[in-house]
Design a protein around this nucleic acid. Structure first.
Lengths: 199, 199
DNA sequence: CTTATCTTGGAATGACTATTCCAAGTTAGG
DNA sequence: CCTAACTTGGAATAGTCATTCCAAGATAAG
């Protein structure tokens, strides 16, 4: 008997992700969302419940659609060192040029901003960090299996360090950092963990 | 003939720094500042000019009073590797415990938030990065002079990498990161750059 | 003490904030 | 067709935002 939704909630969430990603959730008003999505306040509140829940939903969707696939690809890539290098090369390229240049990463940005919000937001931050660090650990273990890991390297600590480098790349790219400088820094860290059997 | 100010502008700015640092500039209203500093809107606007200029002034003061002294101490410390290790140990401690625990770094937070503001804000971000990276470079050169640098390490890239690690420590500490995990990551990066002649 | 010049408190402003509510419209099963 | 259950547009609300303005008070030089 009921009526059915006249719009696609997931497509709407994608547009909200873009708004929060580029401008930040705090500086984006409901009016901006209404204008960008084309639907009305009533439908927004009926579907998502309010701005706080909308922010949590958008952040979760960003993690699942933007971050998770890349992390999974890194974890599944058996090459080890080249996989990590490729991850960072694509990261720097995506952060400094193209459609989302200088937007940074929504999850990274939320660290500085959305900590005081819903507890679900902090949960997404934790899940993001676990996924990123686990992917780095898997890649480092593949590097170890290939004999490319320097003796004495703590895999867990190195995985955390590489994850931290990714956060910093996301952050500094927003301020206009040079891609070459970011890449050189990341390569230096990676070189410190590995032996140079390639090239 | 003129009247003189009935309050200390620098002390006021210190309180504003704390507000912006803990809660963020976007989520802090003029009313909050009035309440925290005790002075009136009129005096605020007459002295600082508005919220945007107030944010730029607070950010600049944070850089000069909080960041710069630590960077200068690192650059002047001739010990090399131990100086870098001590810098990060104190950083992690300050970010995870004590008076400003879990506040992160105002400059780091501003990367994710205040890029769209006054151009002076971006200037402070650049000055901060230059000062941090230069201090790291000086410390790495001291390490090189002491024979502690692994052969083939690019000092400039390593300095950038250590600066990036500091940003990430600041960021992740806001989300409740474990001090031990942050320290282990930083030590792993530093170990990758250096030889273990100590202890 | 007078006076010019600044500071200060408080009220007032208008534009925006998120959120709620309701009547009108739309859908699909009976 | 009819009706129950939902969606939707738009108006309305109460609060907060940064900012401005003005009269009253304070200060120090002459």
């Amino acid at each position: 008997m009921p009526d059915v939704k006249h719009f696609d909630p997931e497509a709407t969430l994608d547009r909200v992700v873009d708004l929060f990603w580029e401008r930040g959730a705090d500086t984006t008003g409901i009016a901006d969302i209404v204008k960008a999505t084309g639907l009305s306040r009533s439908s927004l509140y009926a579907t998502f419940g309010g701005k706080a829940q909308l922010q949590a939903a958008a952040l979760g969707r960003y993690l699942e659609r933007r971050s998770r696939p890349v992390f999974d690809a890194l974890a599944a890539d058996g090459r080890g060192v080249p996989a990590i290098a490729a991850f960072f090369e694509r990261l720097v390229a995506a952060r400094c040029s193209g459609e989302h240049a200088r937007w940074g990463c929504l999850v990274t940005n939320t660290h500085a901003t959305g900590i005081g919000g819903l507890p679900e937001i902090r949960d997404v931050l934790d899940r993001h960090h676990d996924a990123l660090r686990s992917a780095m650990r898997a890649a480092l273990e593949a590097a170890h299996a290939a004999g490319r890991l320097r003796p004495g390297v703590d895999v867990e600590a190195a995985a955390e360090a590489l994850a931290l480098q990714a956060y910093a790349v996301n952050l500094r790219s927003r301020a206009g950092a040079e891609p070459a400088a970011l890449l050189a820094a990341v390569r230096a860290v990676l070189n410190g963990f590995t032996t140079t059997e390639e090239r």
